[in-house]
């Protein structure tokens, strides 16, 4: 991920699902960061063991590398990668690809689940809150074999999910849902749930209760949550709870930010810190005039301030880009 510092923000989502550009929230930088909830490979990496984790890391690194090449080069590649790892898991739960019309590219209303207009006969079961069920450690062991099955087309698969609204896979749970959730996360999840109306009487709709939704771990809801924003995506859970991928992402973020900060600090320190020595070693600098001013006065009295402002601006931009990359990786 650190390779993508200088690139554009990565977006590893399938291309046709791109949202409209108008739905960013306040900051305006997360047009690409709002792909929440429809990427299967965000599912807990820990539940499939070390091999899966390794694949996941490789894939993310590869995606990050691709992302640094530029906005246009990466969509197709990224989407194909995603498709392969994405689809088969659902193939255990869904009838199959290609049965329904293509998924409309829509811009759903903010915060509300909505059935896309182009989709005929909206089934009430689709009106599902965008619960993103989260799996704790040790969950969904059945995902593993599915992940290696043949890969149907992504669209078809999604459509299926749309039609079903919820694809609920029975999870042969080994015990209760993971008990530990940090307070933060819990709060955030609850917040999202509260914010979304739930259609009563929908038998398949997951209960907003977090425990309940944890039980129906395989629930996927694709509608409506195209929003970015503060949403605890699966990967966010990873990142926060110290799972393998989360650990990698997190140390990458802090490492990248530290590298950026140090680079700017060392550069500035060298530029400014060299001046006293230069002045002392070459006294003639102090007698040279430039633009009618002695060079030390010109440098220290005037030019140093725009220099500092520019360094600050440049760093702010760089650091924000690192953050965006991180958020995109996590939310995708």
């Amino acid at each position: 991920m650190s390779t993508s510092i200088d690139g554009d923000s990565p977006s590893m989502r399938p291309g046709p699902e791109d949202d409209g550009a108008g739905d960013d929230y306040d900051a305006g930088y997360d047009l690409e960061g709002n792909r929440v909830g429809d990427r299967d490979d965000d599912l807990g990496p820990e539940d499939s063991g070390a091999v899966w984790l390794h694949e996941e890391i490789q894939r993310r690194i590869a995606a990050g590398r691709r992302a640094s090449k530029g906005r246009h080069s990466r969509h197709e590649v990224a989407s194909s990668t995603t498709s392969i790892s994405y689809v088969p898991r659902h193939s255990t739960a869904t009838p199959g690809p290609g049965a329904l019309p293509p998924e409309p590219v829509s811009t759903p209303a903010r915060g509300l689940p909505r059935v896309p207009a182009a989709w005929s006969s909206p089934d009430p079961t689709t009106r599902i809150p965008p619960v993103r069920p989260t799996a704790g450690p040790g969950a969904t062991p059945d995902a593993r074999p599915a992940a290696e099955g043949p890969a149907p087309r992504v669209e078809g698969h999604r459509r299926t999910m749309l039609a079903g609204g919820v694809a609920k896979v029975p999870v042969d749970d080994q015990g209760a849902p993971p008990p530990y959730r940090s307070g933060d996360l819990h709060g955030v999840r609850k917040a999202r749930l509260d914010a979304v109306p739930i259609v009563p009487g929908d038998p398949d709709a997951p209960d907003p209760d977090p425990h309940e939704s944890m039980d129906s771990r395989r629930v996927r809801v694709v509608l409506s949550e195209r929003r970015g924003g503060a949403r605890p995506v699966r990967t966010v859970v990873d990142v926060q709870e110290g799972t393998g991928v989360g650990e990698l992402l997190r140390s990458n973020l802090i490492g990248a930010q530290l590298a950026v900060a140090l680079r700017f600090a060392v550069g500035t320190a060298l530029a400014l810190g060299a001046l006293p020595v230069l002045f002392a070693v070459f006294p003639e600098i102090g007698r040279t005039e430039l633009l009618g001013l002695r060079v030390p006065w010109l440098l220290l009295g005037l030019l140093v301030y725009p220099f500092l402002v520019l360094v600050g601006l440049w760093h702010t931009r760089t650091a924000e880009r690192v953050e965006q990359n991180f958020a995109d990786h996590v939310q995708d």
């Binding site: 709060g187 955030v188 503060a230 990142v239 997190r250």
Partner: peptide
């Protein structure tokens, strides 16, 4: 909880990790 605290300090707010943002 070092990891959580450090993550909260460095992760952008849009990930929804911070209480204020919530």
């Amino acid at each position: 909880d070092t990891e959580q605290v450090m993550l909260r300090m460095h992760a952008p707010e849009r990930l929804g990790l911070s209480r204020d943002r919530l």
